[in-house]
Write a protein that binds this DNA or RNA. Structure first.
Lengths: 347, 347
DNA sequence: ATAAATAATGTAAGCGCTTTCATATAGCCT
DNA sequence: AGGCTATATGAAAGCGCTTACATTATTTAT
């Protein structure tokens, strides 16, 4: 490996003025051509077009942003990219932003809300035109700053009419209610839950609430030692599942905070020789690609990650353009019943 | 859902001049305080600090970038975020960038090199100070433009001393050589491969070459119908594996282009009642979290995704700072032997 | 103390665009 | 053709910072 001092010279780039001179027009005309080609007459437009092409002109976004007061960038601040479902959502968000002429500024905060405050501050300095957040749980100063700076934002991955924030998401609580209802209908009564960590995470919390809503309506609940929280990782899921299954009586169904935890739970059952769904049913949340491929295939809730990314982009772009938008947009979560759930006690 | 026209007023934000006036100093002093606090005397620094805090001042990055000719943003253009290994690398890249004061501009191009050209162009307009690319396969105009604009870039996920581009990556070919060597040592002779799509993808190509290097050195090769390319998805892996195993004679080992394909292959074996590794051995590439958790656990190559993200960030930041850097940095790939490989013919 | 050297500060000129406003040109109607 | 309107164009003023340079304040050395 060679070690070299590479003097990287920031080339003396072409500017608008250079193009203007080369095309014998004013800078205003070049600017107009670039932003709205039809507003300049064909003959001169052609001159400008050629000058731009020949000189390899690349507009300076900083100058543009400063003069126009719009950076044409959009920020997204997410917990982590290591969770495939966020990655999928962001992927779609970015793609759609690009189609609208925007570029994505991305930051993650690893579920640490203080870190999120800092990451958001960094994006605000870069003068993003809009911001995508995950969920509603954010430090008050986040909302304060966003409002003070007049940066439009939208919360995703969650939905709540009681929330004052614009959002494009789904109802975590209701989704879990539906899944729980289904489980009760097929006969389950002894529920356990391997929830995601609920501190500073409204999505995880809502999922737990959804389960409890239904159970309580039937006079049931999740027993204290049948409730565990764990990180969204296979390993955490395995460990928690093991601890859970070493108790007795065992639950007849274990509802997991997401598919990754459920995957871990399923693996642990296999290594403990616990039959799924014969001995215990397992459910997930997200419907990652692996869910349908597991053996047995995972019963779960399909989160509209891609649709959410697209809609969130449209929402922000529309608002910036001054168009009317649905301020609280709800997307559907689909209940996907597969093979990890069955009536209890069956073999 | 209520539909509302939300007039988002870009607040009249505080400027440097406002702070300067409030603190009774010049704008130059405020600027210095912000960029290098020690260069202004304590007593006035304090005045400025207070004004900034009280007035909730947020510097305007566009103005800053224009005046200083540095945007403090770094671009990354990747094939897709849907592949967990890229997500992991980008996660680390962003974290380290942030620590160095940079913000990440992210774009993906879905393995379409023309799309990559466009995405890169968009980032260049935003005047990123540096750029992270994946692999060496890029349209010539990408390199041309990058050089013309003097934007430092670094290719990751690959390494080659024969390449002229700066890189921080690992040697895909050599990694596969080692894995293949191991497989030959335990007795395999009939190799099959489920490669990633090699068109416009030097990493996928190098992996295939690595396998062939070793086989050819022993007078062997992958038979034409024992070689298939597929997308990096579970489903594609399953389909390809099925087609492969319906032939005879069956290979004794199937080397996959990455863990996701291998996962698909493994699942397909399970549904075809083919025993792994008894009937056939399977290998992956990446060592995703699921690799170690599969049943049987997957033999694979551990890609240093996080380390690569961190090092790539350091590389770019150093170069921009004018420091000397290792222009071609090679990271190690670890051979992880688990349970999906065994000598052939054993049960 | 005083001069010389050093450090801190202010002044003002940009950075490369967009956009208002005034002016020039083209298109239209009679 | 001539006048009127609609449309293109150019000149120039910023957008909010950084930074070279000139100036002033503070140290340090003598």
């Amino acid at each position: 490996m060679k070690r070299t001092r590479l003097h990287h010279k920031r080339q003396s780039n072409q500017t608008l003025a250079d193009i203007a001179k080369a095309a014998s027009v004013s800078t205003a005309t070049v600017s107009r051509f670039l932003n709205n080609p039809d507003s300049v007459r064909p003959e001169r437009a052609e001159r400008v077009r050629r000058a731009v092409a020949e000189m390899g002109y690349v507009p300076n976004g900083a100058a543009r942003a400063l003069a126009s007061q719009r950076s044409m960038t959009m920020g997204a601040v997410i917990p982590t990219l290591d969770n495939a479902i966020f990655a999928t959502g962001i992927e779609a968000f970015q793609r759609r932003l690009y189609e609208s002429g925007y570029t994505l500024l991305l930051a993650s905060f690893n579920f640490d809300l203080e870190e999120e405050v800092r990451q958001i501050a960094a994006l605000m300095e870069r003068r993003v035109d809009g911001m995508l957040l995950i969920g509603f749980d954010h430090r008050p100063e986040v909302y304060a700053k966003l409002d003070a700076m007049g940066v439009p934002y939208v919360c995703s991955w969650a939905f709540g009419l009681d929330q004052k924030s614009p959002c494009v998401g789904f109802d975590n609580r209701d989704a879990m209610r539906r899944l729980t209802t289904y489980l009760m209908e097929i006969g389950h009564r002894r529920f356990a839950m391997l929830a995601g960590e609920t501190a500073h995470n409204d999505r995880a919390r809502d999922r737990v609430l959804g389960v409890r809503d239904v159970l309580k309506s039937k006079g049931l609940d999740i027993e204290a030692d049948a409730y565990r929280e764990c990180a969204y990782s296979i390993r955490a899921g395995r460990l928690a599942m093991r601890a859970l299954m070493e108790q007795s009586p065992r639950p007849t169904v274990v509802m997991c905070g997401n598919d990754v935890i459920a995957f871990g739970a399923l693996l642990e059952c296999q290594s403990m020789a616990i039959h799924v769904p014969g001995d215990v049913s397992i459910t997930g949340f997200d419907d990652l690609p692996l869910a349908s491929n597991l053996q047995p295939a995972l019963t779960t809730l399909r989160v509209p990650a891609t649709a959410m990314g697209l809609r969130a982009s449209d929402h922000l772009v529309s608002r910036i353009a001054g168009n009317s938008v649905i301020l609280q947009e709800k997307l559907d979560v689909e209940l996907i019943i597969r093979e990890t759930t069955a009536p209890p006690g069956r073999v």
